[in-house]
Design a protein around this nucleic acid. Sequence first.
DNA 1: GCCAACGTTGGC
DNA 2: GCCAACGTTGGC
Length: 135
Amino acid sequence: MNYWLVKSEPVKYSWEQFEKDGRTCWDGVRNFQARNNLQGMRNGDLVLYYHSNEGKEVVGVAKVVREAYPDPTAGDPAWVVVDLAPESRFTRPVTLTQIKNHATLQHIGLLRQSRLSVMPLRPEEFDVIVGLGMG
DNA sequence: GCCAACGTTGGC
DNA sequence: GCCAACGTTGGC
């Protein structure tokens, strides 16, 4: 089991819409590092869902329900997508400020590489954030 | 609105 | 292969 974090601007695709859809194809990734991370996802892996720009908080947990396949919105099959489904919504979203202030989260990808949109998490990072979000 | 970080492009 | 210019992302 691996843990990940994906970012989405809520004006483009929000957690609320994600819940309405019940499942979504995570398309549009055009960055090699993010693409490589998508390819590392396995069915059942858990994924934190972060709202960038507006909100700036982790709002819930998603689950990988289909592993990497070619992105239908890209001309080049080198770009891939995965399918995600909502797993649980946080009772209290975890803000970027909370993440910055938490001792265990000082080395999280979200802080180190602010522009990367798909990144791996350490199990302890995942656990801490879920603990805060569901607490 | 500004700026830092970083990826891409193109000239040399 | 280097580097300047430029575009995009995302926090503030």
